[in-house]
Design a binder for these strands. Structure first.
Lengths: 158, 158
DNA sequence: TATTGTTATACTCTATAACTATA
DNA sequence: TATAGTTATAGAGTATAACAATA
């Protein structure tokens, strides 16, 4: 009877963890969206796309952006179009493949993203202010473990 | 110079944690949405509303649902309408206040939600399968600490 | 034939604000 | 006047699928 009790009690444990993680993420995400709109008139996907480009100064192809942002290609086209219209990113031809583009930040885009990233960092630091440095590390490590294992199993479907 | 070095190095730590947490949450959430649609032809907000009602067998008022689901009132009306049309929830009059309703699961809704919740639990348990029981606890505790502190500070704006 | 990227479309979720009915 | 809930609207954000150009 120990086993039965254990079998039933272990599941809600993971479930409670998930609900807490989901709620917290939504809370922080909602605040980030609100602040991005209020202070910079932009959205999280747009910020995310620019963040990807900031990490890759040579630019990224559309399909690379699509994979990293975890959305389908059509959406990346739409977001990129907006940012191109505002002069924040540009499409550069790829030598040797006339189908593909490489999207990268313009100087103005890089500068604006710098401002946004500084603010964004402040919001995030404030959100995790309740944890000590070693607790942040512990959390980071535990989530990394989940992610590594999850990748292995969940992506079998692909 | 120790202080300056510390000041600069602490921020990316929280930032890396946030990015990892956001990515992981999106990964799990996306899978849950896909499975809910494939197996039950439903969505996460609908599942969420039913989950709230399952925890409150006497039902919840619209504004209580709105607060718990962290969305504004109009949206709750729309989702509730859908579920009423499918016979999964019902609006019950509140004695003493003819403005208010109490929304609760119908027997059919409760039964269907049971099926969904069992599957949902399996997906979540699988997602966190890489962690031991004590690691799940540790993660749960750390996130609770973030949430508690975050609530105190972030909601000052309200 | 396969791949890169775009276009067209439709649907869900969301916030905002004006509104009705009741307190 | 304030509160409970609805309605109307507009805008993100997303996936799907058909398409054009190139490989």
């Amino acid at each position: 009877m120990d086993m039965e009790a254990r079998g039933h009690s272990e599941h809600p444990q993971a479930l409670r963890l998930w609900l807490r993680m989901l709620t917290l993420t939504q809370l922080v995400e909602k605040q980030v969206r609100t602040e991005l709109r209020a202070q910079f008139e932009t959205t999280l996907p747009r910020f995310d796309l620019m963040a990807q480009l900031e990490r890759n100064p040579d630019g990224l192809k559309m399909n690379e952006l699509s994979r990293r942002m975890m959305v389908t290609g059509g959406n990346v086209t739409g977001i990129t179009d907006q940012l191109v219209n505002e002069g924040l990113v540009e499409r550069v031809e790829v030598a040797g493949d006339r189908r593909a583009y490489r999207v990268r930040l313009t100087p103005r885009g890089r500068s604006l993203f710098g401002d946004m990233a500084r603010q964004h960092e402040n919001w995030i630091v404030a959100a995790f202010d309740g944890l000590s440095s070693s607790e942040v590390d512990a959390l980071h490590r535990l989530l990394g473990k989940v992610k590594a294992h999850y990748k292995d199993t969940a992506l079998e479907t692909t």
